[in-house]
Write a protein that binds this DNA or RNA. Structure first.
Length: 548
RNA sequence: GCGCCCGUAGCUCAGUUGGACAGAGCAGCGGCUUCCUAAGCCGCAGGUCGGAGGUUCGAGUCCUCCCGGGCGUACCA
């Protein structure tokens, strides 16, 4: 049994013995920072104070007196808190269980193999991916990994918006570059795409097609749109390959139209009476439901807006059987999200179906001219280039290290020059050191396999750092769960940095090899630690190197 | 104006469902290597948790207002 479960059972037992009521919900537990407060503490007495009409400290005192559980060596009531101290054997038992679970330690079965979708990146094919998309790629992929670990059947999906006005502008921008390559003085449209990346493609097309498209005719639109989207998708695939993210499903906006779904969902909204006509367009009555404004669903020219398609897309997701959908999106989509959620609510879809992981933007520090990135203005740093410069591990780790809803200041110079003090290296180095010990241990004929270590005598593990490490390892499954359910992979970074920060001093102080009976026991501890580091890093899409 | 997010040490940020004297890394200063990788370890210094009220036995955490920053407020996506 895990330590928290142990403590809950013991406290519940004491409550029963005293005929005290149980608090509504779980018995609250904490891991106190100070050693003198024990291994686990509970403020359950505070919760019962009102109901029992007695001061918390009295209740805690009674609980301490009635407390009796073999896993705990002593109990103390301090200032209303109930502080529990575990017996070392109970802590070591946790290690044995971790070794029994092996590489699966940290996984859950909460998802029960139900289908869950993570939609992320979904960048329009109007340019390569920038470092901003990098945050989303790292975040989405980590969340997908985390939900897999919770036992969900996860689908990674990319929504491809390959139609509409932006694509038209892209095509026209490319055509302008093509004309320029042929010596014509054709400017890129002011609200078009000004990035360099279209210049080279324009030149290629000039030499391939010659003067075939002198005017911006419907034929030209068709030709350039096709080429532009194809080439942009090529770049996006390169960027995704660079960061190591791959998708299971690509959904194109055009598919939704062709299936008649957009029309059908619009009609459904109309049937619910939440659509009205004004100025030739169809609007949704969102203000009646408390939102800031009414959005257009169908333009006066009869074409559906992005929002309308987005609503239909989510209906489609539901029909495809997803029990839960997580959309990773930038903060500039918040209003859109409110509108989609409202529409789904009106249509009667369950509230818990759609979740958004909203993230703020990445600011690049140390690169002149691109502090405020804009694909359209051609002012950005390509994700692939960043990764080539810093390495995939550093980029991925940095991108998820901060909570999504906070701005991320990516200090280029720091990320580069601190390759020595970088937190990702700090964590990876802990793994590398353990790997190194295991190489030496094997040479020395010590037990190194899980099979051998799970039956080894753990009683030599009496050092305070050793017991503290085991207690920290015990937290891992909860961290995984919380990181997933709160859409905060940064919690995993924090945890692993803590773990590495406990291991390095221990390593420095305590020798593992050549210590007689203590050696196998310590190897057992390090085996579990290595497994957790591996698992944690892999959940973030970061490697766990054997050698650095 | 309205909506959402952020404001914690010089810098970048953590901080469970409110809890026991506010944490980490970097930067700064001073130490540590006959031994499993020094990409490491030990120590010092550094903060009126943006401000003001309020709720509570207890507020960095919840509520209100204010200040500062970001994003949105399109028949763009």
């Amino acid at each position: 049994m895990r330590l928290e479960a142990l403590a809950r059972a013991a406290i519940a037992d004491a409550l029963r013995r005293l005929s005290f009521p149980s608090p509504s919900g779980e018995i609250p537990l904490e891991r106190p920072e100070k050693a003198e407060y024990g291994d686990i503490s509970s403020r359950v007495a505070f919760l019962l104070a009102k109901e029992l009409k007695r001061p918390p400290q009295e209740i805690a005192g009674d609980l301490a007196a009635a407390f009796s559980h073999p896993a705990f060596s002593h109990v103390e009531a301090v200032g209303g808190f109930l502080n529990l101290t575990l017996r070392p054997e109970a802590i070591r038992e946790v290690l044995r269980q971790i070794l029994a679970e092996g590489e699966r330690y940290g996984e859950w079965e909460l998802g029960k193999r139900r289908p869950l979708q993570v939609e992320f990146v979904s960048s329009n094919p109007t340019g390569p991916l920038t470092v901003g998309h990098g945050r989303q790629a790292a975040l989405g992929d980590a969340l997908a990994n985390l939900f897999s670990a919770l036992g969900w059947e996860v689908t990674r999906e990319y929504y491809l918006n390959d139609e509409g006005r932006q694509i038209e502008l892209l095509a026209q921008s490319l055509w302008a570059r093509y004309r320029q390559a042929l010596g014509a003085d054709v400017p890129v449209p002011e609200d078009g795409y000004h990035g360099d990346y279209l210049v080279a493609i324009g030149e290629e097309l000039a030499s391939e097609w010659g003067d075939r498209y002198p005017e911006w005719t419907p034929e030209a639109v068709e030709a350039f749109r096709g080429v532009a989207v194809k080439r942009m998708m090529g770049m996006i695939h390169e960027d995704l390959a660079a960061i190591g993210v791959s998708f299971d499903v690509w959904t194109r906006e055009g598919d939704l139209h062709r299936r008649g779904l957009v029309r059908e969902v619009f009609e459904a909204l109309k049937d619910r009476g939440v659509v009205y006509e004004k100025d030739g367009a169809h609007w949704m009555k969102s203000t009646e439901f408390g939102l800031a404004r009414d959005p257009v669903l169908i333009r006066s020219d009869g074409t559906p807006t992005y929002l309308m398609v987005d609503i239909a897309y989510h209906v489609d997701k539901y029909r495809r059987g997803f029990v839960r959908v997580v959309d990773v999106q930038g903060a500039d989509h918040i209003e859109e999200q409110q509108q989609v959620k409202l529409a789904l609510r009106i249509l009667g879809y369950p509230e818990e179906f759609l979740h958004y992981c909203v993230h703020q933007f990445v600011t690049l520090k140390g690169r002149e001219g691109i502090e405020r990135m804009s694909t359209r203005a051609g002012r950005f740093l390509r994700l692939k280039d960043l990764i080539e410069e810093l390495g995939r591990d550093v980029v991925r780790y940095f991108m998820v290290r901060r909570k999504p809803e906070a701005h991320l200041i990516f200090d280029m110079e720091l990320a580069k020059k601190t390759s020595v003090e970088n937190p990702v290296y700090y964590v990876q180095y802990a793994h590398t050191r353990i790997a190194s010990i295991f190489r030496e241990a094997e040479k020395a004929g010590e037990p190194v396999t899980r099979h051998a270590l799970r039956v080894t005598d753990l009683s030599p593990l009496t050092d305070r750092d050793e017991l503290a490490l085991i207690k920290e390892l015990d937290r891992f499954p909860d961290v995984v769960r919380r990181a997933a359910e709160s859409y905060g992979p940064h919690l995993l970074c924090e945890y692993m940095e803590e773990l590495a920060g406990m291991f390095h001093p221990y390593y420095n102080r305590v020798r593992i090899l050549g210590q007689g009976g203590a050696t196998p026991a310590r190897l057992a501890l390090l085996y579990a630690l290595r497994a957790v580091l591996q698992k944690g890093l892999s959940l973030l899409g970061v490697t766990a190197p054997e050698v650095m």
